[in-house]
Design a protein around this nucleic acid. Structure first.
Length: 892
RNA sequence: GGGCGGAUAGCUCAGUCGGGAGAGCGCCACGCUUACACCGUGGAUGUCACAGGUUCAAGUCCUGUUCCGCCUACCA
C-alpha cells in the first residue's frame, strides 16, 4: 500500500471538492429508467427558484440524501429527482423589485417582456440553491433536473386543468376570496397567516328609519360600514325579535338597509346585532347569499375606497377608518370604542393585511378529491411518519374548502381557458385553440390569470417523470417510495399531491411520507433575519465540513421534535469526524497493504481472538441497529448507534485491546486475525456511516480498500448471525470490568497515571480464571500495570490494598508507599453505602410474595442475581475496609 | 373554541415490551501513554412538571391539573 501518511486531522474542504465531481461524473447519482434492480425513488420538495439554502433546506435534503444513499448501497435502482419551482408571487416580486430600482413597473414592460425578464433572472440566479445542495453532498439525479415552468411540466399542468374542468372539478365564479392589496392577487386560505393583534371594537348607532329608536352594532372594521347592506340579529334574540324586517338608516351613507335574522349571529357578543358587509367579510358574504341581500363593493384592488364610498373615495382603508370614526363621532353615531384583540390575516408573502374581496376566480372542487386522499391513508397505501400527523391530515381533509387556484399575476402557468368575444363562451383546451369551440369564431382572448404555484407542485411526483406521456421513468419510479418534507407544508403540498396523484394516476404519489420538524436556534426560537439568530448552512459546511454538519442534523432529528441547532453541536460532531479519521489513520499504520480490492473478510471464528470476536459481535449488532432505525426513519437513533459504536467500542476499547498484538507482542497468527478484523470493522463502519458522512468515508475507503471503487456504490452491510458471540461479549465485559475497576481506584485514590501498579486478581471461578489468564498482557497494558498476579484462591489476605469487584472476580491494587489511606477508606465507604441502598431495595422486592408470584420468572431471577452479586460485592469491600482499618491500627 | 406536541442531569435531548433512569455538551480532578488535546482516564449531578389511579412493579399505562410550543376555527 502506498504508505501515504494521513494528516493528523481531517481537512474537509479539499476532500469535498475532490469527491463530489467524481461521483457526479461517474454517474453514481443516476437512476435507470429500466433496470432489473428494484426501484427506489424520492422527489425533492422543489425549493423556490428565488431560494437560498437555509437550515430548513439543509435538514430536509440531508435526510433525503441519507435515505437515498442508504437505499442505493442496498442495491436499489435509486433515483432522487431534483428541481425547483417557479414560486409565482415570490419570483414576480423579486423581478418587480429589480424593475422598481430602475423606476419601472411590470406594466411599463407589458406581460410578454416582463415574462422574458423573469426567465432572464432565472437563468442568472435560479440555479444557485441547487449548487448549494451539491455543497451539502446531495446525490440528486442531476440529469433529471426539472423546473415547474418547463415545457413538459407546463403541459402536465394544462392537461390536468382540462381534465378537472371536464370532470366538473374546476369552476369559475364570483366569490369572496383572500385578496392581497399589495401583491394584487387572490391567495388561497392556506396562504393567509392569522395572528392576534390589538385593535378596537367600535359601537355604532344605526337609527330606525321610522324614527322609533336605534340599533347598536359593534365592529372591528368601522370603515366597511360604507358597504353595509343589512344589520343582522339572531332570530332567537328577544331584544330584537320585533325589529326584524324593519329598516335602519346607515349612518354617513344615509341609506336605508334592512334588519335580518340569521342563526350565525351570536346573542352574547357585542350588542347582539351585527352590521353586514357582504363585500368585505366572508361570513357576511355567505349571509348575503342566504338572504339575497345586495352587495356594494367599496374598495379597489389596492384596498382604496372607490366611488361607492362617497366622500371617502381615494382614501386607503386605514385613512378611511380614521375619517369614518371621526365623522361618526361628529354625527353622534359613535357610542364607544373598546380596545379589542382579534385575529388579523396577513399575506404569507408580504405580510400585508388581507382584504376579503369579491372577484371572479377559479376554484378546484376538492371534496371528492379529498375523500380519495383520505381513504388512501386509511387503507395504508401511503404511510405518514410520524403517525401523529395522520390525525391532522384527516382533519384537514374532512374540513377542506374549495381551493382558489387563480392568481392575478403574470409569472406562472396561464390558465388554459379562452373567452370568445363573439359568443361569450369559454373554450378550455390544452393547446391554444384556433377557434372558439362553440361558435367557431376566432376572437379569442386567453384568461389573464395564472395558476397557484402549488397547483403545479401538486403534480410534481408524476409531471417530473414525463407525464402525460407514458414514459419508462414513470413506469419505473411512480409511485415514488418516499417523500421527505417539513410538517408545515403538509396541507400546502403533501395533501394536494395526494389528491392530484390519485386523481390523475389512480395511484398514490408516494408510499411513505416522512415529516420532519423545524430547525430552530439553541433557545428554540425560529431562526429569522430580524432576530439575527440565523445559522448559515454554507458557513457551517465551510467551517466544520459537510459531514459533521450532516451528521449533526441527523443526530438531532428525533421524530416529532424540533431540531435545535448551534455551532457548538456541529463542532462536537466535527470532533467525531476527526475521531473516525484518526482511527483510520491508526489502522492504516498497522495494516499490511491490501492484497486485493476484494472486500475484507473477518478471520474464521477459530482463528479470531476474543477481542476480535467481541468487536465483530458489536459491529454486527450495530449493523442491524442502523438498518432497523433507518428503515423506520429514526435518524437520531441510527446516528447515535454509530457514534456509540465507533467511538466508545471500536476506538476506546477494541483499538486499545489489540495494540499489543499489532505491535508484535503476541503470535503472528493472532496479529493476522486482529488485522483482518480491524480492516473488516473499519470498512463496515465506513459503509454504515457513508449515508451520513459521504466525504470522509469515501476518502478513507479509497485508502483502505484501494481499487475497490466508490464506497457510495458498494453494498451496504447486512446482519450476519454468524458473527454473534455472546461468550465473547460476556468475557470482554469481565475484562473491561477489571480495567475499569483498576482505573477507578487509580483515579479515586489519586494514584498518578504514570505510576505503574501492582495488581492481584482473584478468580475462583474457573471460566473467569481462563478468560483473565488469556488476557493478562492486554489487561496490564490498558490498566497500566507493573504486574498482574492471577490467583485461584487467596493464601494471604493483603492489607495495604484497594479493592474492587468485576463480576465474579476480585481486584486488589497494592498501595505501596502510600501513607494516607483515608481516601481509599472514603472510596470504599461510599461504594458500600451505595451497595447497601441497592441491597435494601432488592431484598425488599424479593421478600414481597406478590412479586415472586406475579412477576415473570426471568424478572425474579434477574433480581436474585442482582442480589447475590451485590452481596458479593458488599462482602469484599467490607472486608477490604476492615483490613485497611486493622492495618492502620497495627501501623500505629 | 377544537386538536396535536412538550415538561427527565447545569444546557440540549434519548428512553420502542412497565422490571429503581441514559447520551452529547458543560463542570471537577489527573494526564502530551508511539491514531487523535478536535484527545485519554476517572468523578460529580435527577422530587422523570403536579395530583390521583391501575399494577407485585410506573419516566413508561389511565384520569385530572398547571405551564410552554405549534396547528386549526367565521363570534362581528
Amino acid at each position: 500500500m502506498d504508505k501515504e501518511r494521513l494528516s493528523k486531522s481531517y481537512e474537509p474542504r479539499e476532500v469535498e471538492a475532490r469527491w463530489y465531481p467524481y461521483w457526479k461524473e461517474s454517474g453514481f447519482f443516476h437512476g435507470e429508467d429500466r433496470s432489473d434492480r428494484k426501484p427506489y425513488s424520492i422527489v425533492i420538495p422543489p425549493p423556490n427558484v428565488t431560494g437560498m439554502l437555509h437550515m430548513g433546506h439543509a435538514l430536509n435534503n440531508t435526510l433525503q440524501d441519507i435515505i437515498i444513499r442508504y437505499r442505493r448501497m442496498q442495491g436499489y435502482n435509486a433515483m432522487w429527482m431534483p428541481g425547483t419551482d417557479h414560486a409565482g408571487i415570490a419570483t414576480q416580486n423579486v423581478v418587480e423589485q429589480d424593475l422598481s430600482r430602475k423606476g419601472q413597473t411590470r406594466h411599463d414592460l407589458g406581460r410578454e417582456k416582463f415574462i422574458e425578464k423573469v426567465w432572464e433572472w432565472r437563468e442568472k440566479y435560479g440555479g444557485i440553491i441547487l449548487n448549494q445542495l451539491e455543497k451539502l453532498g446531495c446525490s440528486c439525479d442531476w440529469e433529471r433536473e426539472r423546473f415547474t415552468m418547463d415545457e413538459g411540466l407546463s403541459r402536465a399542468v394544462r392537461e390536468v386543468f382540462v381534465r378537472l374542468y371536464r370532470d366538473d372539478l374546476v369552476y369559475r365564479g364570483d366569490y369572496i376570496v383572500n385578496w392581497c392589496p399589495r401583491c394584487h392577487t387572490a391567495i388561497s386560505d392556506l396562504e393567509v397567516e392569522y395572528e392576534e393583534e390589538k385593535g378596537g371594537l367600535w359601537y355604532i348607532r344605526y337609527p330606525y328609519a321610522d324614527g322609533t329608536g336605534e340599533v347598536v352594532v359593534a365592529t372591528t372594521r368601522p370603515e366597511t360600514m360604507l358597504g353595509d347592506t343589512a344589520v343582522a340579529v339572531n332570530p332567537g334574540d328577544a331584544r330584537y325579535r320585533d325589529m326584524v324586517g324593519k329598516m335602519v338608516i346607515l349612518p354617513l351613507v344615509m341609506k336605508e338597509i334592512p334588519i335580518i335574522a340569521d342563526d350565525y349571529v351570536s346573542i352574547e357578543f357585542g350588542t347582539g346585532a351585527v352590521k353586514i358587509t357582504p363585500s368585505c367579510d366572508p361570513n357576511d358574504f355567505a349571509m348575503a347569499q342566504r338572504h339575497d341581500i345586495d352587495t356594494v363593493i367599496i374598495m379597489d384592488g389596492s384596498a382604496v375606497i372607490n366611488e361607492n364610498g362617497g366622500p371617502y373615495r381615494g382614501q386607503d382603508r386605514f385613512t378611511a377608518r380614521k375619517n369614518v370614526i371621526e365623522d361618526l363621532k361628529k354625527g353622534n353615531y359613535l357610542i364607544k370604542e373598546e380596545p379589542y384583540t382579534h385575529n388579523v390575516g396577513r399575506c404569507y408573502r408580504c405580510k400585508t393585511i388581507i382584504e376579503p374581496a369579491i372577484s371572479k376566480q377559479w376554484f378546484v372542487r376538492v371534496k371528492p378529491l379529498a375523500k380519495a386522499a383520505t381513504a388512501a391513508v386509511i387503507k395504508g397505501k401511503t404511510r405518514i411518519v410520524p403517525k401523529m400527523w395522520e390525525g391532522t391530515y384527516f382533519d384537514w381533509m374532512e374540513n377542506i374548502r374549495d381551493w382558489c387556484i387563480s392568481r392575478q399575476i403574470w409569472w406562472g402557468h396561464r390558465i388554459p381557458v379562452w373567452y370568445c368575444d363573439d359568443c361569450g363562451e369559454m373554450t378550455v383546451a390544452t393547446d391554444t385553440p384556433e377557434a372558439c369551440a362553440h361558435c367557431k369564431g376566432t376572437a379569442l382572448r386567453q384568461e389573464e390569470d395564472v395558476l397557484d404555484t402549488w397547483f403545479s407542485s401538486a403534480l410534481w411526483p408524476f409531471s417530473t417523470l414525463g407525464w402525460p406521456d407514458d414514459t419508462e421513468a414513470l413506469k419505473t419510479f411512480y409511485p415514488t417510495s418516499l417523500l421527505v418534507t417539513g410538517f408545515d407544508i403538509l396541507f400546502f403540498w403533501v395533501a394536494r399531491m395526494m389528491m392530484m396523484g390519485l386523481y390523475v394516476m389512480k395511484e398514490v404519489p408516494f408510499r411513505d411520507v416522512y415529516l420532519h420538524a423545524l430547525v430552530r436556534d439553541e433557545q428554540g426560537d425560529k431562526m429569522s433575519k430580524s432576530k439575527g439568530n440565523i445559522i448559515d448552512p454554507l458557513k457551517m459546511i465551510d467551517k466544520f465540513g459537510a459531514d459533521a454538519f450532516r451528521f449533526t442534523l441527523a443526530a438531532f432529528t428525533a421524530q416529532g421534535r424540533d431540531v435545535r441547532m448551534s455551532e457548538d453541536r456541529i463542532e462536537g460532531y466535527r470532533n467525531f469526524v476527526n475521531k473516525i479519521w484518526n482511527a483510520a489513520r491508526f489502522s492504516l499504520m498497522n495494516l499490511p497493504e491490501a492484497d486485493s480490492s476484494a472486500p475484507p473478510v473477518p478471520p474464521a471464528k477459530e482463528d479470531a481472538g476474543i477481542f476480535d470476536r467481541w468487536i465483530l459481535d458489536r459491529m454486527n449488532r450495530t449493523v442491524s441497529e442502523v438498518v432497523r432505525q433507518l428503515d423506520d426513519y429514526r435518524f437520531n437513533d441510527a446516528a447515535s448507534a454509530l457514534y456509540q459504536f465507533v467511538w466508545h467500542e471500536f476506538c476506546d476499547w477494541y483499538l486499545e485491546w489489540i495494540k499489543p498484538v499489532l505491535y508484535g507482542k503476541g503470535k503472528e497468527k493472532d496479529k493476522k486475525a486482529a488485522q483482518d478484523t480491524l480492516r473488516t470493522v473499519l470498512v463496515t463502519s465506513l459503509k454504515l456511516l457513508q449515508p451520513f458522512m459521504p466525504y470522509v468515508t469515501e476518502e478513507i475507503y479509497q485508502k483502505v480498500v484501494p481499487g475497490a471503487g466508490s464506497i457510495m456504490v458498494s453494498p451496504f452491510p447486512e446482519e450476519d448471525g454468524g458473527l454473534a458471540d455472546e461468550k465473547a461479549v460476556a468475557d470482554v465485559a469481565l475484562l473491561q470490568g477489571i480495567v475499569t475497576a483498576v482505573r477507578n481506584i487509580r483515579g479515586e485514590v489519586n494514584l498518578p497515571p504514570s505510576k505503574k501498579l501492582r495488581v492481584r486478581v482473584l478468580a475462583s471461578d474457573e471460566g473467569a480464571f481462563d478468560v483473565v489468564h488469556a488476557a493478562v498482557s492486554q489487561l496490564a497494558d490498558l490498566a497500566n500495570l507493573e504486574s498482574l498476579e492471577l490467583v485461584r484462591e487467596m493464601k494471604d489476605e493483603p492489607k495495604k490494598v484497594a479493592a474492587g469487584v468485576a463480576g465474579p472476580v476480585k481486584v486488589y491494587v497494592f498501595l505501596e508507599g502510600m501513607i494516607d489511606f483515608s481516601v481509599e477508606k472514603a472510596r470504599l465507604e461510599k461504594d458500600i453505602a451505595k451497595i447497601a441502598r441497592d441491597l435494601q431495595f432488592v431484598s425488599r422486592k424479593l421478600a414481597n410474595r406478590d412479586f415472586r408470584e406475579k412477576a415473570s420468572p426471568e424478572v425474579v431471577q434477574k433480581e436474585e442475581d442482582k442480589f447475590s452479586s451485590l452481596r458479593n460485592r458488599n462482602e469484599i469491600l467490607e472486608k477490604a475496609l476492615n483490613h485497611l482499618r486493622e492495618w492502620e491500627k497495627s501501623g500505629e
